[in-house]
């Protein structure tokens, strides 16, 4: 029997993988993918809470649909920015794009 706790554990593991990825990966696309993992961890939480705690109301599931939409929009903007940077630098390594420093 899969309980709420299983889903929450899965979500928190995914969230931590996401944070780890953002902090350690140096490729802009990988960082973006790690951020998507964090969003999806939150989505799993929303749907699990919606199913187990408030099965009558669909608040959590509706929220998850909104988050998926926003994640798609965010990916679009991010890829546009990455392409722009690649055109100028021929490089998408986050560490090497570093002109602004005091």
């Amino acid at each position: 029997m899969i309980t709420l706790n299983h889903y929450l554990a899965l979500a928190s593991i995914l969230f931590c993988i996401g944070i780890y990825g953002v902090l350690t990966r140096r490729n802009a696309i990988s960082v973006l993918m790690s951020i998507e993992l964090m969003f999806n961890a939150a989505n799993i939480n929303f749907i699990a809470f919606s199913k187990f705690i408030t099965p009558v109301f669909l608040t959590g599931q509706v929220f998850a649909v909104f988050v998926i939409t926003i994640a798609a929009a965010e990916a679009t903007v991010a890829l546009a920015i990455v392409i722009l940077i690649y055109r100028h630098h021929k490089e998408i390594n986050v560490d090497k794009i570093n002109f602004l420093k005091w």
């Binding site: 960082v31 939150a42 929220f63």
Partner: peptide, 24 residues
């Protein structure tokens, strides 16, 4: 370009935290 990318990566990272917090 660089400012846009930094803003995006850090802003989206922060949104991830906010979203997980709202879920909790």
């Amino acid at each position: 370009n660089e400012s846009s990318m930094k803003y995006f990566l850090i802003g989206a990272f922060a949104s991830g935290f906010l979203l997980y917090g709202i879920a909790m």
